[in-house]
Design a binder for these strands. Structure first.
Lengths: 212, 212
DNA sequence: TAGATTGTTAATCGATTAACAATC
DNA sequence: TAGATTGTTAATCGATTAACAATC
């Protein structure tokens, strides 16, 4: 994975969006793609599309010929690490956690959920979509033995913080947080997925629209 | 709801984060808050915290006294529209959809899911957390009768687009999209929640960290 | 060839940070 | 009073867009 230029967070977020569209094109048998196509479809300027591709692609686009779709897919998937598998564990096998366990799309993103942990006796020991739910008590015991870097947090907000402390102690390096609370720690990477923030953006746009 | 200055999307996304923290302070009996507190806890600069508050608050902060927590909570909740209820419908009552139906935290955000729609005969007619699951066939019939502006999409990617077309025809004005596909339409507000983008950011940070 | 599309370089725009006077 | 903290104004930074020569 050769990363030539440093990429911004916004840029990083755009690659999976490009990739989805390119996969659709590929499935439809389209061989070459021009920046105006992605621009039109995804609402991103042509210049930006080109810059984003230049930043991570191994080969250059050609005037009038554009870029080769499968080549571009390959470059983006490689850059995003989809070709390597990263193991993860899930903390919290409630409604949202079970949705994650049952969702099979993570493997396309190079993410593999090894197992889940919960405190609910009714769930512990069950196997959901081939993943075993362990007791939360076994975090310290099991995690160091697994080759796992990422923990997905799908617990209630109240317990998220204390669990993450334990996960850090067990060697977890990155947290994908879906609990409705902002987590922040000095030595661990945290990506907070905040539905409230997402909804705030939607609501505000709706408010602006209705006011007109 | 008096919106004095126009707020950016990034800014909008920060308010729910502030709000969570302020509610925690309030619960702990803290009366006043300084910008350095939010800065330290949330990883946002002091200046930015102050600017964000100035943009939406009805009253000014005071040197040495900071801002009154409950006042600030009130201002943010009002600005975000949490005091008014917005009705929504859910499309797709699979694993993720059911997690949404069972999640009771949306009411704190002023969002009320009225009902769900699905195509699975085994689910249609069931009541999940007091919300009825209707057949997808009834979209055109039911939605215009309900006072609903937002549709939450939790279907597979393949069917998302065609369903949204039907929803637009039925008068839906805003789409909160959780299907793993980028949706974009000229006359409807769409907020795409893209887990792949979120994971890309996390993975890249992890990659940078491990390379060091 | 002519024209569409590319990558690059320069200009613009907006958001964040720094500096600082005002004030509790 | 002195010092901490505020809001405002100016400077910086980074990302996006515009312009354009190169080229398929």
């Amino acid at each position: 994975m050769s990363k030539l230029k440093s990429v911004s967070i916004h840029q990083l977020e755009r690659y999976p969006v490009y990739l989805k569209y390119l996969n659709n094109l590929n499935r439809d048998g389209v061989r070459n793609v021009f920046s105006w196509m992605l621009s039109e479809e995804l609402g991103i300027s042509e210049e930006q599309v080109r810059k984003d591709f230049q930043a991570i692609s191994t080969i250059s686009g050609q005037p009038k010929k554009g870029r080769v779709v499968i080549q571009l897919i390959d470059d983006i998937e490689t850059f995003l690490g989809y070709r390597d598998v990263t193991n993860a564990i899930l903390i919290g096998a409630g409604h949202l956690g079970q949705a994650f366990l049952n969702y099979n799309g993570f493997s396309d993103l190079g993410l593999n959920i090894l197992a889940a942990f919960d405190i609910d006796e009714k769930i512990i020991g069950r196997t959901i979509n081939k993943k075993v739910v362990f007791s939360m008590d076994r975090i310290e015991n099991l995690i160091p033995r697994l080759s796992v870097h990422i923990a997905i947090i799908a617990t209630p907000a109240e317990v998220a913080d204390s669990i993450v402390q334990r996960l850090i102690g067990s060697g977890i390096e990155a947290i994908w947080n879906f609990a409705p609370i902002h987590l922040s720690y000095p030595d661990v990477i945290v990506e907070n997925v905040n539905l409230a923030s997402s909804l705030a953006v939607l609501s505000h746009k709706l408010y602006i629209k209705e006011r007109k």
